[in-house]
Nucleic acid binder design. Structure first.
Lengths: 342, 342
DNA sequence: AGTGACGTGGGTAACGTTTTCCAAATGTTT
DNA sequence: AAACATTTGGAAAACGTTACCCACGTCACT
């Protein structure tokens, strides 16, 4: 009953079946130079007849593995899923297979995961919102083609794709000011590291908020609760803001999950949205679009970001010494039912 | 400026530095038999001093890759994220690295992803809610240790971990009957394939619903809308049920997303929940727990399922010929605000 | 003292590809 | 027709690790 699974087919079997050398088969597999159309045809047929599939492990030892590693800090963040969709769609008809490393929140876990991907000879890496030190990222990028998504700042070693978070924050503030709000508060992700303070999207959003408030002459109204980009962080942040002597009339949460937490705290305080207070999020995740919630949010087009990252990566794999590029996309505001006139 | 990344360290470098053979280093790396404590110490130190990391590609060619592949049909389903958490937590302090293959909805994509994992010499596979034919799963399991999660039915080739969906459906029906409901309807995922009809969780839930209704003497009240496990499916299913000559007083949706769709349709029909109609879901996803929704749902403890799957898999990698096991977990009901007395 | 078992370490041949040559055949130019 | 470039196919050496086997020394027991 438990027949012992026949030995895996190798390139040698294909070569024998097609009556050619293994070199020839290898050339056909890689679309390499030096194989005539007739040879291609013959080998392709042998491959199809035998159902041969090359071993990535063996390939990796000399050449490519045709594997692209994607690091995601958090699976539950739907925005990241959009980015991933963009990557897989873009890579769908190529020879590359995308593999994901889960659970890499924190610098230590991130380092472990990146090492694991390098150990597995991946051809390229997409790092989404990495928190590692810039020096480390540069080292990684020197040993394997890398694209960093969602982290500002340029590097000579890796390409980057970001959204213009400063512009995104401004969109929200402009919208709220247009509705007559003045006391507009912000819930940010607490950050201490200096480099990250300059490069991480959360910091840029907080900066964008401050700049936009100043631009509207509302410098005196700037009010920030510093918690974290989680639902609990939003809940806590909103509680802090609601306890102010003069309550804000609008809250700009740095992320949709944060806005959700804020909504809970607001409901618990017996206030209504948008009657008593307006709330806006960031990311335009599926959650924001969900009917009963209907959250005003900034849309980043994660699919577009992912697709661009994949394109840049494949490009770099083909040409490792080209100059690095920084791609910045413009966000848009999606107005829903959680924001209204003050 | 772009120093050309020094050649990667190999086991030979370590062997030379520690003044021993490569065989010895390999033994230490694998915790294999035949190395004295003194030898271990010496080699460990050399590894640490040089910062050596073994190449998974080379290892895969002869032995293990220390990589476990997980196939998820859908990243956005939070229940699957829980399973994954369970897997990574369980494997956290082992030598195994978990890699995920994204976007495998549909039999064809699933086949491609499984092949890709096999090609990459993964040591073991966790397949979550696979839709492939049973024959195919058996073939896969013969070539690489495999655990199937969330699919009923036993196999001599692979272990399986499931939730008792029949019991889960019964929990919901019991609860609703206890509240005085009699006209309890169900929204199921439409299924035609015979094997899947017996093995997929959705079919089991529908079965459990029927059995429980009969057990309560409510055979005449059985009413099923057959759509799909999506939000749109829930919306459509609820519309169908609401259009019945005699409206049901409670709807048991086969999944939380389905319940969400149903809630939308009910609200659109001008009815209230749970005043006019009670709604229950399945999965106890974060969405169900979210305050404003507060959906009564069946909890499957995905973390527990994932942890068990990982345990079984590691066990099987170590002992490939042991008998297969089927592990079935008991669900619990989480009562929230969408169900009330009839 | 002889014998066998065991613990310890190493030499070497795989593993399945790709890469780097090289030779032969074919085509093109003078 | 000679000289040279190009195309086509293959032989053989990597790539970095592990599996298999053997040798040597030590120890316990006849």
């Amino acid at each position: 009953m438990d027949k012992p699974a026949p030995r895996r087919l190798t390139i040698v079997d294909v070569a024998r079946h097609a009556q050619v050398s293994t070199t020839a088969v290898s050339k056909v597999l890689r679309n390499a130079y030096g194989a005539s159309p007739a040879m291609r045809e013959k080998v392709q047929q042998a491959i199809a007849e035998l159902g041969y599939r090359p071993s990535a492990a063996a390939r990796g030892l000399r050449g490519q593995t045709y594997t692209i590693g994607v690091m995601l800090p958090e699976l539950r963040n739907l925005f990241f899923a959009d980015i991933l969709d963009g990557i897989t769609t873009q890579l769908g008809d190529s020879d590359y297979q995308v593999l994901l490393a889960p659970g890499c929140n924190g610098e230590k876990a991130e380092a472990k995961v990146i090492d694991a991907m390098i150990d597995r000879s991946m051809d390229g890496l997409v790092l989404i919102a990495p928190v590692s030190a810039k020096k480390r990222l540069t080292e990684v990028a020197r040993s394997v083609p890398t694209v960093v998504v969602g982290r500002h700042g340029s590097s000579p070693a890796y390409d980057s794709v970001t959204d213009d978070d400063i512009a995104g924050a401004a969109l929200v503030v402009d919208h709220l000011v247009g509705l007559g709000h003045r006391r507009i508060a912000h819930i940010e992700h607490h950050e201490t590291d200096r480099v990250r303070l300059a490069e991480m999207p959360n910091a840029q959003r907080a900066d964008g908020y401050r700049q936009a408030m100043i631009a509207h002459g509302l410098e005196a109204e700037i009010d920030v609760a510093s918690t974290s980009y989680t639902q609990a962080g939003g809940y806590l942040g909103a509680q802090q803001l609601l306890a102010r002597p003069v309550r804000p009339t609008a809250i700009f949460a740095g992320a949709d999950v944060v806005a959700l937490g804020a909504l809970e705290a607001i409901a618990e305080a017996g206030l209504t949205v948008p009657g008593d207070i307006s709330v806006a999020g960031y990311d335009n995740s599926a959650l924001a679009a969900f009917g009963p919630i209907s959250l005003t949010s900034v849309d980043q087009d994660g699919r577009q970001m992912g697709a661009n990252a994949a394109r840049l990566l494949v490009d770099r794999i083909g040409q490792r010494d080209r100059r690095t590029a920084q791609m910045k996309l413009s966000p848009t505001l999606v107005v829903r039912r959680t924001t209204a006139a003050a």
